[in-house]
Design a protein around this nucleic acid. Structure first.
Lengths: 213, 213
DNA sequence: CGATAAATTGACCGGTTGGTAAAACCTTAC
DNA sequence: GTAAGGTTTTACCAACCGGTCAATTTATCG
């Protein structure tokens, strides 16, 4: 007995391994079908175990989903946290775009999990959005506004700037099928670099202050 | 008898009304939960009728979905089709952004229906993506490339330019919950205009050729 | 009006869903 | 070894799923 959360005891080797396997499989399934569209049987099969076995480690379907979301939200906010007020705006923005684009390339399932959740009205993470996320964005918006005031970048709405960086970078993970369909074979390997180069240029040109003549 | 598609006969007034009601309700449900997450009972209830009654007008759940997707895809491509090679690049890009943003504001459910479909791997519309959509984008990419070659806009990857316009504008429909959570009360009415102003400036500044000194 | 076709319903079907109970099976530590 | 606790499986459940059917009700039209 004593399944997950093993009271005040530490977890078994098997527990650790199996939970990891379940979360890995669940990420595949939830990111592809959304919460309601995914089934425990499907996740269990992908994890190579029986459904009751899976439910021995996570009490409910929602518990698996919750755990996945919590993990993801943390790493999801990392790049924005790294945004440094004392840094050079051009460098900061360029590397923020890079980091977000790398996350779309390296963790597309996480991106789609998040997208599915938001698309469906964020029923499980609304508090995280209006709480920690909003607070973090508010803070960084102030940084951007300060840069603009100091004449380091052009004056613009900092919130919409952040939205536009989010959307353009996450697009390559969330709308991957469409991107592939439209680009065809044109873009085997260079796709990532092409996107990075284009986006950096777009945002840096779009934000640079014009030199007075 | 003779339900939908009434052989070679024309449709009844009731048929027309009920089918419209079903599609309206189905748009609500499918856009919120995706194909697999939505249920016929849910759609039927939202449409104010019994499940067998709904299935009298549409043979299957997939038939409802298919109809919805077909309608949506047509109007979805309209703005891009309007993109005029002979027009002024600045005007064309500005009004393309406007039109796409207006669609996000006026038809958010359609946008989310599309996003759900793509997110889940586009199982029902892959052919439309690699066929008509790709062809249209290829055509417009050529237009953009010609503008760049003529020195009317800066040289950039036309495909990624189109992707970035799609993603930034659709973001306001697909990620509406997140946008609302982050902006808080700051954005009752002006939200749309703020976004439009920001995006137009970003893209026009990002694409303008620098005057030789 | 009456007849004919269209629209609606309730009862139902086989399959799937999330989740449970209990017994059988392994691991581990003494 | 053996006993205790951790793990896995089999069998099962009630609710729900997409969809069918026959019977009933309603609209249409001569």
């Amino acid at each position: 007995m004593i399944p997950r959360a093993a009271k005040t005891q530490r977890r078994t080797r098997i527990q650790e391994e199996k939970e990891e396997k379940i979360l890995e499989a669940a990420l595949d399934v939830f990111s592809a079908y959304g919460f309601r569209g995914a089934t425990i049987d499907q996740i269990a099969e992908a994890a190579g175990m029986s459904k009751p076995n899976l439910l021995y480690y996570f009490r409910t379907k929602e518990a698996v989903h919750r755990t996945l979301l919590d993990r993801m939200l943390f790493t999801w906010l990392e790049p924005l946290k790294a945004f440094d007020a004392d840094g050079d705006p051009e460098t900061e923005i360029r590397s923020y775009i890079r980091r977000k684009l790398e996350m779309s390339r390296d963790f597309p399932r996480e991106s789609r999990l998040f997208a599915n959740e938001i698309l469906q009205g964020a029923p499980h993470i609304e508090d995280e959005l209006t709480g920690p996320l909003k607070a973090l964005v508010d803070e960084k918006a102030q940084v951007i506004r300060a840069w603009a005031k100091a004449g380091k970048i052009v004056r613009c709405d900092p919130y919409h700037l952040i939205f536009s960086i989010w959307s353009t970078t996450q697009h390559y993970a969330d709308f991957d099928v469409q991107v592939r369909a439209v680009l065809g074979d044109k873009a085997g390997e260079g796709r990532f670099e092409d996107a990075a180069r284009y986006l950096e240029e777009l945002f840096l040109r779009g934000l640079k202050v014009e030199k007075a003549p």
